[in-house]
């Protein structure tokens, strides 16, 4: 895109700045629109699994429900509890929302269509997703209230636990792709299974990793069945209890933004990203970003499906799953994958 603006007679620095800002807008605006739409989809899927009709009043099939909700919270008054730590109380939702948008910078939407093509892309995503916990912890602490504080405690322990196993799972993928760059990781999946299937999921060594990544990403984004931080039967609404209006909406948007990001990562790391699912010339007629969006949509459907059907975990079960099952198993698979790759001369 820089070349295009340079073609209009701008110097390199100006062209680069304008094209980067355009790139950011081209990613951030569709992501926010997509967040509004997936909130609707989530409620619709959840409703149909419970044999209800879901949102069906605002717009055709209730499709504008999220926008109506957005307008509603926008017009409400922001209430700050008098005992709260005001500065941090207002910063917390901003952190959550910003962090949810930041990581999209390194997701490749097509070969070459990537905002920041850096060679530590996957580490960048790990770094950014580890920041996500601060929004919740700061919100819980600064509210100066019991239930949000409990929620903050739970969130910090939960997110640290599952980041460890996510790290090991990513190591397996990185070993196979031989790169931290997400574009290279997608390219490494080209014709991965029998020269026909695009995607790491079809390897017997990486398929279990995919399953564990999916479950860990639910825990990492605090989606059901791991939504212990906002378990309404125990903690009212967790860290969001004291929040109202736009501050509450930012948490809401940030949370769904994180879920979409995890679906995008899932698609990029295991399902071939912007590549078509199988190697057929005719499938390449459909542009790559549509394949990516379809894969993200599939991932999100799985998230809603699980939310609608699986009961919430107990906290000790959550910790047990993270530390006693996922951690050793993912470590074992790091050994297995690196051993297999060494034996087959992958790094030669």
């Amino acid at each position: 895109m820089t070349a295009f603006f340079q073609g209009l007679g701008l110097p390199f620095a100006a062209a680069w700045t304008i094209s980067t800002i355009c790139g950011i807008l081209l990613i951030a605006l569709p992501v926010m629109l997509a967040v509004a739409m997936v909130i609707y989809v989530d409620r619709k899927v959840w409703a149909s699994m419970a044999l209800r009709r879901g949102p069906n009043v605002v717009g055709p099939f209730g499709i504008l429900q999220s926008f109506a909700d957005g307008l509603k919270v926008f017009l409400q008054e922001t209430i700050i509890p008098s005992a709260a730590n005001k500065g941090l109380f207002l910063i917390a939702p901003i952190i959550t929302f910003t962090v949810a948008l930041l990581a999209w910078a390194v997701i490749p939407f097509n070969s070459g269509a990537i905002l920041a093509d850096i060679n530590v892309g996957l580490l960048y995503i790990l770094a950014i997703s580890s920041l996500g916990v601060y929004g919740i912890v700061i919100a819980g602490w600064s509210s100066n209230s019991k239930y949000p504080f409990f929620s903050a405690m739970r969130a910090s322990a939960q997110m640290i636990s599952y980041e460890v196993s996510i790290g090991f799972i990513l190591v397996c993928v990185v070993l196979w792709a031989n790169s931290f760059n997400l574009n290279d990781i997608v390219k490494a999946q080209h014709g991965f299974g029998f020269g026909f299937i695009n995607g790491f999921w079809c390897s017997p060594l990486l398929f279990p990793m995919w399953v564990m990544f999916l479950i860990s990403s639910m825990a990492e984004t605090q989606r059901a069945p791991f939504d212990l931080t906002e378990a309404e039967s125990e903690l009212v609404a967790g860290y969001q209890t004291e929040y109202s209006s736009m501050a509450f909406a930012l948490f809401w948007l940030g949370e769904y933004g994180n879920v979409l990001l995890m679906c995008a990562l899932n698609a990029t790391l295991f399902w071939g990203g912007y590549l078509p699912p199988v190697e057929l010339a005719i499938l390449y007629l459909i542009p790559g970003w549509i394949w990516l969006i379809l894969k993200i949509a599939f991932g999100f459907f799985v998230f809603s499906w699980v939310k609608a059907t699986v009961p919430r975990y107990r906290y000790d079960q959550l910790m047990r799953l993270g530390w006693k099952i996922f951690l050793p198993v993912s470590l074992l698979f790091v050994f297995l994958v690196s051993g297999y790759l060494m034996a087959t001369g992958h790094f030669a």
């Binding site: 580490l123 910090s156 640290i160």
Partner: peptide
């Protein structure tokens, strides 16, 4: 730089804060 953020910001400082 990324390790600094992952290890110190993402893990050590969370435990401090905790």
């Amino acid at each position: 730089a990324m390790l600094l953020v992952i290890v110190y910001v993402g893990a050590v400082a969370v435990l401090f804060l905790f």
